[in-house]
Structures are given as structure tokens and as C-alpha cells.
Design a binder for these strands. Structure first.
Lengths: 123, 123
DNA sequence: GACATAATTCGTTATCTGGCGAATTATGGA
DNA sequence: TCCATAATTCGCCAGATAACGAATTATGTC
């Protein structure tokens, strides 16, 4: 039950659902996710921790960069079924479609530029 | 997105998930649900309102009694898929199994007795 | 109509959650 | 070694949520 409730609580926030959907195609680094959801890096990081705790995402560190992705085939069936359910439920959702467009633009820009812009915004 | 988030928020509470699972076999009246989850009638009623708002349950009034049930075939596919997902995810869950046992005992007793006991408890 | 009672609504309280900025950690480059 | 910087953790605040008991609503019975 614990694991299931971790998952439902993780999904009970729109930002986290949007992030999950955006990881569909490829791993994203934190600065890209920050750009996507328009929140402070600290807040975004917290969301990623909650998703990780629920087992809904994985991450790898590459130097100073952290890449989050959907979990691999070795993850529990529950996790895969959950992601499938979310994806199916929101397949034609307006917000999700818009996010996919935004993501495309973000991926066109080198991550370093994103980070610099985010730094400039708050300091 | 609104409807989906209503559903995930409804599922982000263990009591509500347990109630949903217990409705599997047959409709239950509020006093039975109160007995099952061990909370105050007012609290339980609020939970039922949230589940109803999310579309995850229906209810019918029979005189002074209100019976909650899983929604019928005319409910949106999203609702049925959600319930299927929850059921599958917790099929062998310990809490769910225990609740099923408790429910069996509750169904053996006439609802009137339950209501009287609940009344005695708080007044 | 008056009363009993199943359920809900209301008002209050304690806890949880999501948000931010500041401080900290950890890594690559000068 | 020292600095720059990507990310996280910490400390705080505002708003949401779950719990209760009291009051209210609605329905059946006398």
C-alpha cells in the first residue's frame, strides 16, 4: 500500500504529471525541466525527488548535470502500468500537447543557455 | 486535465482508496462505510463527496439511506480504466485483504445496528 | 404535526504541501 | 587550489487538506 500511495500522492500535483509526460521521449536535465514548468529550481528539484521516491523516474549524473528519465524495463510492473495509465488518460490533453511543443523549443537550445537565463532571473 | 487531477487527488488518500476497493462487490450505505474505515460520519461523508466529485462513485438515495456504488457502464472510460488500475495495483494488498474480511463481518449485521452503535459512540 | 434518525454541512484545528530565496554540495575548468 | 556553476537542501510562509463535534437537512414513523 505504501508504494501505491507514494505513487498516487506523486500524481496528485499537476506539475509532476506534466513532467512525467514530458519525459516520454528522452531524458531531460533539471534545467530543461525547470524551463518547462516555469518554477524555481529548488521547487522543481523537490518535485523530482517526490517522483523519484515514488519510483516513477530514474536519474543519472553526468558531471554537474543530472538527467531524469522514465524508469527502465527492470522497474516494477506497477510503475510501468501507472505510467501507461497516465499517458493513456492524457493522450489528447491540451496542456500535454502544449508542453510537448514547449519542450521541442527547449531542446533546440543548448542547456547551458537555459541555466544562464535561469541564473540571471533570480540573482 | 481537470478531471484527471480530480481523480489523482481523490486517490491520494488511503482511506478513499480503501473505500473504493470495498465497493467492488456491492453498493454500501454510509453507515457501513463509516464502520469500515473507522472515522467520524462527517469525515467519511466528506471523503464520499470527493470520490463522487471525481466521478469514481455514484450514489442512490433510498429513504433515509444513501447507497454508494462504483459507477455504471455509462461512466467515462477514464473512470473505468482508473478503477481497473487501482484494483490491479492492489490486488494482493494486505490492507485490502483485511478490509475485505472486515466488510464481510459488517455485511452480516443489519445496517440499523451499525448506525445505533455509531450514534452511541459519539453522543 | 412532532419526533427519531441517516446523512450532510459548517466551523474549527492541526498537519501537510507547494512555493520561494538563501545556503550548501559537488563537479569541471582555470 | 580556487572559482564558476548545476543541482539539492534548508528555512520559512501561505494555502490546502483531513480530522472532529455541533448544527442542519431530509426522510420515515408515530
Amino acid at each position: 500500500m505504501r508504494q501505491f500511495m507514494d505513487i498516487t500522492k506523486a500524481l496528485a500535483d499537476e506539475t509532476r504529471v506534466r513532467i512525467l509526460l514530458c519525459l516520454r521521449r528522452k531524458p531531460l536535465c533539471v534545467c530543461q525541466i525547470v524551463e518547462l514548468c516555469g518554477l524555481a529550481p529548488s521547487t522543481t528539484s523537490k518535485h523530482m525527488t517526490i517522483l523519484k521516491q515514488a519510483g516513477l523516474v530514474d536519474f543519472v549524473k553526468r558531471g554537474r548535470w543530472v538527467y531524469y528519465s522514465l524508469p527502465g524495463d527492470d522497474a516494477p510492473a506497477l510503475v510501468h502500468e501507472t505510467i501507461a495509465w497516465v499517458r493513456q488518460s492524457l493522450a489528447r490533453n491540451k496542456t500535454a500537447v502544449q508542453d510537448a511543443r514547449t519542450l521541442k523549443a527547449i531542446l533546440d537550445e543548448p542547456p547551458e543557455e537555459l541555466c544562464k537565463r535561469q541564473m540571471a532571473r533570480c540573482c
